[in-house]
Design a protein around this nucleic acid. Sequence first.
DNA 1: TCTGGGGTCCTAGGACCC
DNA 2: TCTGGGGTCCTAGGACCC
Length: 395
Amino acid sequence: MTSASAPATPILHVDMDAFYASVATRDRPDLWGVPVIVGGGSRGVVLSASYAARQYDVRSAMPMTRARRLCPQAVVVAPDFELFGQVSSSVMESFRRVTPLVEALSLDEAFLDVRGSTRRLGSPLEIAEQLRATIHDEQGITCSVGVAAAVSVAKLASRRAKPDGVVVVPPEEITSFLHPLDVGELWGVGEKTRAMLHRLGLVTVGDVAHTPLRTLQRAVGAGLGSHLHELAWGADRRAITPRRGPDEPDRSMGADETFGRDTDDRETILRELLRLSTKVAGRMRVAGVAGRTVTIKVRFADFTTITRSRTLPEATDVTQDVYRAASRLYDALGLQRARLRLVGVRVEGLVPRETVHRQLVLGEREHGWSDADRAVDRATLRFGTAAVRPASLLS
DNA sequence: TCTGGGGTCCTAGGACCC
DNA sequence: TCTGGGGTCCTAGGACCC
């Protein structure tokens, strides 16, 4: 053991600035400096807003109707997820040239553990600056980087660094950095928890830090209490785990869609469940996974949302199995004239398909539906999704 | 014509089993 | 009168993230 001493702040959190908006406009000089909103649909929300649009208080997740009211002159661009995915892959590749310890949190942000890269590349701060230059040169977009000893602190630091900057939080400055922040800034503290903590008189991160653990746990529950206490001291020791590979598939896959207008028509709703089941099972087959628990989601016109699930005896990736379970769950609700805003289908408990041995059911042809699915998948591959779909989706 | 779509994780009660 | 006690699975809901 003769290596240089480990850096005190080995964790980088890299976060693209206004990622979707930046990518959507990087080849459109006419849109530079202009308020741009990525989003769409009459009932949609803002996916990303350029910094010029943020001047008008337009924010991510805001209903599009409200965003247009705040900034009527904004240019609205539809999202191009294929392009976002390509840029994201290139960016993640740049990260992996620095260290194999890259944990992607989404298309546009990742944690990097640079402990093993400092001899080769310099201090964490120097690595952060190199990365920012690389991404700017190669992708034409900017990013911000937070640098700290713990992932939760690095994450907050990158927010402070925005846009287009770096913030390093050395160990001796963790509490002075964290404690003045509102509790709502903590990663994992959303609207509800923030409101509850405020009601308890815990407004800043420092307030939480100085509340005895037992008291905190009594107020918010054992799990959340100890989690918050750790975060408030920047003591989160979560390690960086490179993203799941094929050996560890996603835990669930699902799809849902908001209707253009609310509906109470059973045929329309069942057709949508079939479309969503087709989509989800198709994605499962591409990923080579099967799952046992089928869940439907139903959102009523008043936005109240319920779920119903059913666990099958065997994992499946067969469209018909998923749809049959979904439609039965829907019918079991016994809805009469309730108007629905959204329905969704999700399959959970995913395992690699080769670990599933499909039992022979008496009277059922062994491969019937899955053979049909594979034929559909082959045709889809050749001719696109429009080519092959169940008859009831053709109308 | 307020409020998307993709996920993850946690909690809690009841069933069921030993 | 009297209530066992864990462990695991299933279901439903909810909070949170980007």
